[in-house]
């Protein structure tokens, strides 16, 4: 029965090859060919698609928006979820209730959630402007629109990341914390020198997935801002969608896809390299 493991792995492998690897190779091929409106490859053009892409103003905007979004989103999201997880990591039914409320957003469909957020942030009839008592033009001011995307991103990612942090914090042995407390460590010191190193593997995992999600963000853009105002929220994947699917420019769309992949991959490689040197696994 030496073939058993291969049989077991076959369904998963089939799916991955069919829906990830083959499309990836085709995308790469498309990106170095000129492709017709109906998706046929017309001829090999080498790096010409990339050269045009890098000269494209719209692409410059997408690139800088995606990087800006990642830089704003990842620290904000991790700070807020980690804070929530630390604060609700205690015994008692109130803490349990809090935990339930914190990961409840996970149970709402992304699109419906975004539609609700869109209503809430509507400048003239939305509840947010009424509550804060200001007339913030969420969809007309480029900075506010970017902030809105970050808020929506945190809201969407909150439940899952919170769950992971909570689970990791619970796994920190209680007797270690007690020892620390007896030795006179305060709450912050316990967190900084005991809990943080012990949850570091989870932290790295969350940073990695957050960067990936941020670099690939598209659904909130599509539903909330459609890239506006003035392309200030047009991200790389959203531009890929516009050029590739809305305009039928498969060659350019594929080139964007490859660029996004390389950027994300590079970011993750650097991070994983750092992780190997700095993180302690139990």
């Amino acid at each position: 029965m030496t073939c058993k493991p291969y049989i077991m792995i076959f369904p998963a492998l089939l799916l991955v090859v069919l829906f990830s690897y083959i499309p990836f190779i085709l995308t790469f091929f498309n990106s170095i060919h000129s492709v017709s409106l109906s998706g046929e490859r017309l001829g090999f053009v080498g790096l010409a698609n990339y050269r045009r892409l890098f000269g494209n103003q719209s692409f410059h905007a997408s690139l800088s928006n995606t990087i800006r979004f990642t830089l704003f989103f990842v620290p904000t999201n991790i700070t807020i979820t980690l804070l929530a997880a630390v604060l609700s990591n205690r015994k008692g039914w109130l803490a349990n209730l809090n935990q339930i409320f914190f990961f409840l957003p996970m149970a709402v469909g992304m699109s419906s959630m975004l539609m609700i957020i869109k209503m809430m942030f509507n400048p003239s009839i939305g509840i947010i402007n009424r509550l804060v008592g200001a007339n913030i033009q969420w969809f007309n001011d480029p900075n506010a629109a970017m902030a809105l995307l970050v808020i929506a991103g945190v809201f969407l990612g909150f439940g899952f990341d919170f769950l992971l942090f909570s689970a990791a914090l619970r796994n920190v042995p209680n007797d270690l914390k007690e020892v620390a407390r007896i030795n006179g460590a305060n709450g912050f010191q316990i967190f900084r020198h005991l809990e943080l190193p012990l949850i570091a593997p989870t932290l790295v995992f969350i940073i990695v997935t957050n960067i990936k999600n941020a670099m690939l963000i598209s659904a909130p853009v599509l539903i909330l801002t459609e890239g506006g105002p003035f392309r200030s929220t047009q991200t790389l994947v959203y531009q890929m969608y516009l050029d590739g699917f809305k305009s039928g420019n498969y060659a350019l769309g594929s080139a964007i896809a490859i660029v996004v992949f390389l950027l994300t991959f590079a970011a993750l490689l650097i991070l994983l390299h750092l992780e190997r040197r700095r993180i302690y696994y139990q």
Partner: peptide, 16 residues
Amino acid sequence: VPSSYQIYYAFQSGIL
């Protein structure tokens, strides 16, 4: 015109 979305933003961003 093709790329109507990009052209839409090209006008808007250019004027702004």
